[in-house]
Amino acid sequence: MSAAAAQAEGGTVTLINVFEVPECALQASINYWKLSRDFLQTQPGYVSTALHQSIAPDAKFMLVNIAVWESAEAFKAASAKMMQTAGIAPVDGLKFTPGLYTVIETD
């Protein structure tokens, strides 16, 4: 089954969001993630999230967020609402690249 077909049948989507963290801004970036998580977990369609930190001190992506949402539409609506109403100030220089995925293979 294709990823689009799985989503059409009501399967969950996985958000994978990688973060390029400016030097000396790791804790501020984690705090930003926590504020965002606190807002998003109250939104319809939220399932779970986990923040991962690289064990390599020179990693390009120091933080990686993995979240599960009931649908792409739920994630997009929650993200738009957060940007419009939550008032969460971004960390200067923090770059993040979110993408939505579906599982196509497991062990």
Results as ranks from 00 to 15, higher is better:
Pro98Tyr: 05
Pro22Gln: 05
Gly87Leu: 06
Glu20Tyr: 10
Phe39Leu: 02
Arg37Asn: 14
Ser36Leu: 10
Met83Thr: 12
Gly10Thr: 02
Phe61Val: 05
Asp58Arg: 11
Val64Thr: 15
Phe39Asp: 04
Gln27Cys: 03
Pro57His: 11
Glu23Leu: 12
Ile16Phe: 09
Glu23Ala: 13
Pro57Phe: 01
Phe75Cys: 02
Val91Met: 11
Ala78Thr: 00
Thr42Asp: 14
Ser29Asp: 07
Gly87Thr: 07
Glu9Tyr: 08
Lys34Asp: 14
Thr49His: 15
Val64Tyr: 08
Ala86Thr: 11
His52Asp: 01
Ala50Ile: 14
Ala67Leu: 00
Ala4Trp: 07
Val91Ile: 07
Ile104Pro: 03
Ala5Ser: 12
Gln41Ala: 00
Gly45Pro: 04
Ser36Lys: 08
Pro90Ala: 07
Ala4Phe: 06
Ile88Lys: 04
Asn65Met: 12
Ala59Leu: 01
Ser29Phe: 05
Glu9Gln: 10
Tyr46Lys: 06
Thr12Leu: 06
Val18Glu: 05
Lys60Ala: 07
Val21Gln: 00
Gln43Glu: 15
Val68Trp: 05
Ala80Cys: 02
Leu40Ile: 03
Ala5Ile: 02
Met83Cys: 08
Thr49Asn: 15
Asn31Trp: 02
Val64Glu: 12
Ala6Gly: 03
Arg37Trp: 09
Ala6His: 02
Val91Thr: 08
Val47Leu: 12
Gln7Arg: 14
Leu26Met: 07
Asp38Cys: 04
Leu15Val: 00
Gln84Glu: 15
Ile55Ala: 13
Asp38Trp: 04
Glu105Gln: 10
Trp33Ala: 09
Asp92Ile: 02
Ser48Ala: 14
Val47Pro: 08
Gln43Arg: 11
Ile104Glu: 04
Gly45Asp: 07
Leu26Glu: 00
Arg37Gln: 15
Ser36Gln: 13
Ala3Trp: 04
Thr97Ile: 14
Ile88His: 03
Ala4Asp: 15
Ala72Tyr: 12
Ala28Ile: 02
Glu73Cys: 05
Phe39Pro: 06
Thr14Asp: 09
Cys24Glu: 15
Cys24Ser: 15
Thr14Lys: 10
Asn17Gln: 03
Val21Ile: 00
Ala78Asn: 03
Gln53Tyr: 02
Ser54Arg: 04
Gly93Trp: 08
Glu70Asn: 11
Gly93Ser: 14
Ile16Thr: 09
Ser54His: 06
Pro98Ala: 02
Ala86Arg: 11
Tyr101Met: 01
Ala67Ser: 11
Tyr101Ser: 07
His52Asn: 12
Ala28Glu: 15
Ala72Lys: 14
Thr97Val: 13
Ser29Gln: 07
Lys60Glu: 10
Ala28Thr: 06
Ile55Asn: 12
Gly87Asn: 01
Tyr32Arg: 09
Ile66Lys: 14
Gly93Ile: 12
Ser79Gly: 01
Val13Ser: 01
Leu63Met: 01
Ala74Ile: 07
Asp107Lys: 14
Thr85Trp: 07
Gln84Phe: 06
Leu35Ile: 00
Gly45Ser: 10
Gln41Asn: 14
Pro22Ala: 03
Glu105His: 12
Glu70Arg: 15
Lys34Met: 10
Lys95Thr: 09
Asn65Ile: 01
Ser79Asp: 13
Val68His: 05
Thr97His: 15
Val13Tyr: 06
Ala28Asn: 10
Ala3Thr: 03
Tyr46Leu: 02
Ser54Trp: 01
Gln41Pro: 01
Pro98Gln: 07
Ala89Thr: 11
Lys81Trp: 00
Ala4Arg: 03
Met83Lys: 15
Met62Trp: 04
Ala8Gly: 12
Leu100Gly: 09
Val64Met: 08
